[in-house]
Design a protein around this nucleic acid. Structure first.
Lengths: 199, 199, 199, 199
DNA sequence: AATGAATGAGCATTCATTCAT
DNA sequence: TATGAATGAATGCTCATTCAT
């Protein structure tokens, strides 16, 4: 913690530390001090790299988004070349995927979804986060739109958000069959998927 | 602020004040002090009536629920005696209602929905709020179940939550036609409404 | 510094401490911490009694005013019953008095005038101090008006302020003969003193 | 803000920036950072050119003096060759001039006088500024001495300072008739003006 | 039952300064 | 010669909580 001059990517380490802190203590527990301690960095260093906590929050949410989009992208295969207007098993794939996320890390800290939702929902009161939240929303919608039309994709995202929150907020058990069922209803009458670029 | 000894419904006034404070400054701005000032009550009085802020938060969310359930109940008429398995215009009614809530109070403070969602979503990190959030969710679901079946009702609530959050978090405009459309899809194939008690 | 609950007139002690701190380190050195240390009182106590530093500054300047007005009043005897339109030796009395103030306390800390002027002049940038500065100005003017007319009194105050500042700001030596001379010029053609109340 | 290597009059630009900063935020708001930002110059550059803030303050006050002396000189014409011992309208000229300064710039920032007085009065606590304050005082006195004798000039300066401060500190309205009156009294019995050099 | 006073911990932020480049 | 990065100290202020009344 002393004399450690010259430390490139300290900025990145601070973002990582911020994510861990939020995971452990929530956004309310994210302070310059807690981040500094978590990153093992002098206090002044946090304000040097991120003048305000909002800046740090934005960076954290953005990094989370990248990781999340990658995860979703890996889980949701794009539509095959000869798919009809609607992917046959998308509803079930999504329901299964959602179940995996919500089950989460059984170990100590909060699960990934909870952390992610906390940051995402923080945009409600923090305008600075709004653009990042919008990016996240659009990114996931775009991924799903590879298997259905954009309007349907957006509705799927909303429904999955709503169902996840019901589980997270009320402690209700997750029922994959039920979720697949209602997702399927939204997929009913969906248009053709967005063709991949260059197609 | 002084000498106001006998004051039987001070407790209620504190809850009202707490709601106003959260509306104006967010949950992060809810402190014993801010509530005391808002309610024009000595500081010690707040800790006396609500030992912790969580207690106050629970009371506030519960009060909000009551008002909200009443509003929803008034907006969503129960199914008539000879309705078929599904109310013909429920989707549009809900979309319109949602639009009204999201448009909100154009005056100073935050709109009602934003306030309500902030408290509701706070349950993510505050276990004490979880039971109240569950109550809220069940109450609204039950109201909608008077026009469709419970599983569908729960999905409608989730979808409306998700769509509302998209609007609130990303600043996207609200499109009632789109919302009615996707709500209608969820209503597709819904079962019969829950018969009124005693029916 | 510990366990000293119940300490009435702690508020007064804080004001005294603030005056000593400003005397020693200037307004720039007046911080909640420095006052707390000087008064041997916990830090939180300073913000409890004076929510902002401006409040403390106002209280300090006001207290200083009282003492100063008393000192001036003692030094400047009111006009005798049969005085003509102008007190014969007022100019010299004032010049002598001014010399005594500017000579000040040869010991360590800043002299009283310097301290007083620093707080008084701070009103230039701190609107909160303005009313107190105005009070001070009027009080001294009223005292002098007992020996001459109010317009002349106000000018005497201005001239004495200006001459004092020349000494304090530029380090020029104080020349009582010169000061008496120019004060006398202002007194030339002055009207009758303000009659004492009830006279 | 980057790569601006060759920049010969950066020093001057920093002084200008410092004056603007003091005008906007007061001496207390003058920091290396605020100057750097105002001058659009890297932070390190300010400490490089002015090791301490006092140095910068001295430079700023000195520059202000030059401009002010020029303004006064332009406003106060020297005595004509056949003037009697006393300039007939000097009192009124000065009163009018003072009124113009105190009215100041009606636009956003602080008026020029306020800024100038703040820096001038700062000498009270900052010995480094004392010589510059003395220069200012002497310069203005010398200018006025071209229309009256030096002792009287010095008193005029003191009286004008005192009257200006009354207006600035207490918010009292400026009354040019009154000011001319009392200035005239000081001019009463003044000696002959200082003859121009070489006269 | 109720409350004014008190206090220790903590927070976001700002800053002068140092130093390696 | 300049400067971006870094840092330790400090500041004003807020707060939950305690306690004596």
């Amino acid at each position: 913690m002393a004399g450690r001059r010259y430390d490139p990517d300290r900025r990145e380490r601070l973002i990582d530390a911020a994510i861990r802190v939020v995971g452990r203590k929530g956004i309310a527990g994210l302070t310059h001090r807690s981040v500094a301690a978590e990153a093992d960095v002098p206090l002044g260093s946090t304000t040097y790299h991120f003048a305000t906590l909002d800046e740090l929050l934005v960076a954290a949410l953005r990094r989370l988004n990248e990781g999340f989009a990658a995860a979703v992208g890996a889980g949701i295969a794009p539509a095959g070349p000869d798919d009809g207007g609607e992917a046959p098993d998308l509803a079930e794939e999504l329901a299964r995927q959602l179940g995996r996320w919500l089950a989460g890390d059984p170990s100590g800290d909060r699960t990934g979804v909870e952390l992610e939702y906390e940051l995402y929902l923080a945009a409600l009161r923090r305008p600075a986060l709004r653009p990042v939240a919008a990016e996240w929303c659009e990114a996931v919608t775009a991924l799903l739109a590879r298997r259905t039309d954009p309007r349907t994709a957006r509705a799927l995202v909303a429904l999955m958000d709503g169902l996840s929150l019901q589980v997270l907020l009320t402690g209700a058990p997750y029922d994959p069959g039920y979720v697949a069922d209602v997702l399927r209803r939204v997929l009913t009458g969906a248009g053709p998927p967005v063709p991949p670029e260059g197609g």
